[in-house]
Amino acid sequence: MPLIRDGKIVEDIWVSLDDEAELPEQGDVILSLDRLKKEANAIQTRSGRTGVVLENDVDEEDVETYLPHIELIALTFPAFTDGRAYSQARQLRTKLGFEGELRATGNVLADQATFLCRVGFDSFEVDNDQSIDVWNKALRSMSVAYQRGYDGEQATRESGPLSQDKAHTSLA
């Protein structure tokens, strides 16, 4: 499954760990929330980085106490029409101040790219064969956006005069 970051397909160095598998001392692993809770102490001492995958019905406050030890949160899109993860991402970034990698997994399409970036996702596991070019084109398709207070490369009304090639230069 290709992983997109910074407009490129990159190698995924994170390993999703089964709940039964042993927690390795080294290497970057993604745990379920249950496993994370059980290993709350262990993850603080291991040398590898720890991430967690959150289901759509998890209250983000459930993960709040672990955030200082977490460097990646994966949110899931069971269907690309299921938009809960957008609000989860938004909450993690703004309310809880999470600054690590926020990964979109599941049914992720290029046509969601701008939305995903604007709520704070920065890596994308795309489960279809859309090429990186389609992804980047989709990302550049809108240079302006109306909503204030969201991220992204788009200009908003308050961000000053329109820069026609803002999206292009920042992604080049």
Binding site: G83, Y86, T114, R118, V119, Y146
Partner: peptide
Amino acid sequence: RQWSSLHPEFSFL
């Protein structure tokens, strides 16, 4: 109208 157009968080309700 403006705020709701292509809202990044509320387009897949």
